[in-house]
Design a protein around this nucleic acid. Sequence first.
DNA 1: AAATGACGTTAACCTAGGGTAACTATGCTA
DNA 2: TAGCATAGTTACCCTAGGTTAACGTCATTT
Lengths: 193, 193
Amino acid sequence: MFDLLRKHILKRIDLTKAEFQQCTTYFIPKRVRKHRYLLESGDVSRYAAFVVKGCLRSYTIDQAGEEHIAQFAIEDWWIGDPYSYFENQPSVYSIDAFEDSELLLLDRASMEKLCLAIPKFERFFRLLLQANFIASQRRIMQSLSATAEERYLQFLKNYPAIFSRVPQKQIASYLGITPQSLSRIRRHLSKHA
Amino acid sequence: MFDLLRKHILKRIDLTKAEFQQCTTYFIPKRVRKHRYLLESGDVSRYAAFVVKGCLRSYTIDQAGEEHIAQFAIEDWWIGDPYSYFENQPSVYSIDAFEDSELLLLDRASMEKLCLAIPKFERFFRLLLQANFIASQRRIMQSLSATAEERYLQFLKNYPAIFSRVPQKQIASYLGITPQSLSRIRRHLSKHA
DNA sequence: AAATGACGTTAACCTAGGGTAACTATGCTA
DNA sequence: TAGCATAGTTACCCTAGGTTAACGTCATTT
């Protein structure tokens, strides 16, 4: 259960066995079945969730009633709503599972305690945040400069593992296009390549 | 010079006078004249820049030769390319000034030293990153769900101070539309409101 | 076996915003 | 003072992607 988390953390900081043992005590294992919710919009996102197994998404519904996917998460990723989590405000996002999933949850207070107990974790979370921030900057610039087709190809290249695990219409939503457009793009690509 | 920085930091963490004094030693004051560059794409973004006075932007040029603005910065904001800065890679962004500007620069090594000397700064930078990450998430969701006109109105509302200090075409670029479209949107708004 | 309901595909039509270009207005620079 | 570059506006036409709707294919339920 904790093995993937161990590897995940060691990618960013060094930890002794004892430190890792200690750190695991702050996490709460949790299963979320297919189609079930980890977070419902309107609630506060109490947990940052590390995905040990499975596949989930976070999404909002806008004023026009349209769903927009903020993020997918599979093994070795985190999912949550950072705004709600850090600011303790009701979330506009919902998070649900595409597959039966196993998570390790870390609530805000535990994160704080963990950082106090093992100060290296302050650095770990800073690095994590950094990576996420950089990725979201990239997504912004791509949405400004690339066509739907280019964004789709980039998605395939960057996240092949996700592509094969979520319905196409979800990918369309992530890319900011309709499922019909994505279908057209795929047809066009299959003809011309 | 350092007064604004002091207030800026105190918004997020507590600092004694001595600690603040010490922290200032890590920053390098720098002036950038109107139309001059702080960073040119291809170079490594060696500094995170805190804006004491002035107005700057960071932008990329895509394969099609189009400029896209990643960020504006005025007083009390930071500007830089986090990817290049933290990963020590050549940047795809350039940063230049719309007005004569005064900055306080913090290079990577100094940031590291500062965090070691006054560990509270590890937290400060984490909070800063957090705020930026949350803001960029919001920008992503907005670009997925809002029309150009809605995004323009949001921009006006969120950043009125920037609106009045940069050319319209720069705002268009930030919003991901052409200057012509922005002009049309403005005409439409002036008629219907 | 039939019914229901996701999902993906295709087609016909529509619209927000892009591309090009002409015309101002406002600087700078010589 | 002219000359030139940059910014903003408007108009015309065009295109990427949205909208609506029909149809086929699965998988799940009854």
